[in-house]
């Protein structure tokens, strides 16, 4: 996605960002547009990780900005603007998942065991070559089964490489809680994907 470097530089400066937010709050539409351009990719990326498809993520991105710019008066500038925006996106994503009836999946261990038993023998024997793709496919499915806060924490920290402070600001929790979310997500994924992760006899994958 094209992002003019000048704009990015301007956005990256906290003081400039604060000015931009203030101008947008005062009704400057150009400032609002610049905020949208600057944060569209981040918001879209987060929503894509939450809802799992482009169309919904795009719609929710739009709705996030509509809500955010429409309620800038509520933004108190105590935390990063991106975090506040991310929090709105996160709530919208969660509401969206809830509306769809595809909210946090309740996965029973019995179901996981049954799935593990049903997995083909070749899968359990240590994937090679294209079976890494199989692991990725399973991982994609498993990500959609994660509860939304864990999914969002994982996406922000592991997939986007954000700092825990940023993750916590977006999730509206303390950094320690964000760390716990990532830890829980890893454990759940590792439990669900155990047959495809245990490939030591298959040799180094990389």
């Amino acid at each position: 996605m094209p992002r003019p470097s000048k704009l990015v530089d301007e956005i990256l400066a906290p003081a400039a960002l604060a000015r931009l937010v203030e101008r947008a709050r005062e009704g400057d539409r150009a400032a609002g547009d610049r905020l949208v351009r600057a944060f569209a990719a981040e918001v879209y990326g987060l929503l894509y990780r939450i809802v799992g498809n482009h169309e919904d993520a795009e719609d929710l991105t739009q709705e996030t900005f509509v809500r955010a710019l429409g309620s800038l008066a509520l933004y108190r500038a105590e935390g990063p603007f991106g975090g506040w925006l991310g929090r709105i996106a996160l709530h919208l994503g969660r509401d969206h998942q809830r509306r769809r009836g595809r909210g946090p999946a309740r996965v029973s261990l019995q179901a996981v065991d049954a799935e593990r038993q049903a997995a083909p023998a070749t899968d359990r024997d240590g994937p090679t070559g294209g079976e890494f793709g199989e692991l990725q496919r399973r991982l994609s499915e498993a990500l959609q089964r994660l509860p939304v806060p864990l999914r969002a924490a994982l996406a922000l920290r592991v997939l986007q490489g954000r700092e825990y402070d940023d993750v916590a600001a977006t999730l509206g929790v303390r950094p320690a809680t964000a760390r716990t979310h990532v830890m829980k997500a890893r454990r759940l994924l590792q439990r669900w994907l155990a047959p495809w992760l245990d490939t030591r006899e298959g040799g180094d994958r990389r």
Binding site: F65, V158, D198, R205
Partner: peptide, 28 residues
């Protein structure tokens, strides 16, 4: 350790969000 690294590897290899499909000007 092996499982953790492999999971991290799989996470890192996940497709990136298709940001190029996001029409920013239309969004604005």
């Amino acid at each position: 350790l092996h499982a953790t690294r492999r999971l991290a590897e799989a996470c890192g290899a996940l497709p990136e969000p298709p940001i190029e499909r996001l029409d920013v000007e239309h969004l604005v």
